[in-house]
Design a binder for these strands. Structure first.
Length: 227
DNA sequence: GACCAGGCACATC
DNA sequence: GATGTGCATGGT
């Protein structure tokens, strides 16, 4: 790897094309319905997807993965069913907060909720306790098909360690960085985020993996020897 | 047995 | 405004 070159600006589309060439389409979000995507987005907060899958399976097995069931079910029962996803008490509370919003504002209808403009819906969802910017943008992009770039810990780590971003940048700054440099395209944002996650999981844990990173034309900074 | 995982809210300084 | 902590399971 050539660590002598310091790109001052990066072509985010070029990075995207390298990732896509290396990994191919990732087919996100891995869910069968919009409701499952939204529930999954909340359950996966700081949690491995494998554990979320178990919780989603449990919800389906108990036949309660519907807006009506989630709305009626006692929070304690919901917490028990989703326990494999960790933080089950707070997550049950967060699911309940969102489903209450869905019924209060949109009669329990996802079609109605997703009929409003992205900016308006984003603002509304962010007022719900437990739904932060990443969860909300995941819901907007993957379930609602609105063009909002999803920023996660991997995005921050990889792009800051390649000196393209400041690791301390707030969420909105990072999102703006991408959205100002890329066309507002749902499919592009969908695939880009998924590819970043794929890259991080496969190449960013050890130095040996890092050396084979498809982005190795960039350089690492801050004394880090991997992403 | 540590350490981490597709965050977020809240307390404290 | 920055930094620290609780929340909890399951995989490596």
């Amino acid at each position: 790897m050539d660590r002598g070159k310091h790109p001052i600006t990066a072509d985010l589309l070029d990075i995207y094309n390298r990732l896509l060439a290396a990994f191919g389409p990732q087919h996100w979000w891995p869910s069968e319905s919009r409701l499952e995507m939204i529930v999954g987005a909340i359950l996966t907060q700081n949690t491995a997807w494998k554990n979320v899958e178990k919780a989603l399976f449990a919800l389906k097995s108990n036949n309660v993965l519907s807006p009506e069931s989630l709305y009626k079910m006692p929070q304690s029962e919901l917490a028990f069913i989703i326990r494999s996803s960790g933080f089950f008490n707070v997550k049950a509370l967060r699911l309940k907060a969102w489903i209450a919003f869905l019924f209060d504002a949109y009669d329990g209808s996802l079609d109605k909720m997703f009929s409003v403009s992205g900016g308006s819906l984003r603002e509304q969802l962010l007022t719900i306790k437990g739904l932060g910017p990443e969860t909300v943008d995941s819901i907007l992009l993957y379930a609602g098909q609105y063009p909002y770039f999803v920023v996660d810990a991997y995005t921050r780590r990889i792009f800051s360690r390649h000196n393209l971003l400041d690791s301390k940048s707030p969420y909105q700054t990072v999102q703006n960085y991408f959205m100002e440099r890329l066309p507002a395209d749902v499919q592009l944002y969908n695939e880009y985020h998924a590819l970043i996650v794929r890259l991080a999981k496969q190449f960013c844990k050890t130095t040996a993996e890092c050396e084979k990173c498809p982005l190795n034309y960039l350089f690492l900074s801050n004394g880090q020897n991997s992403c």
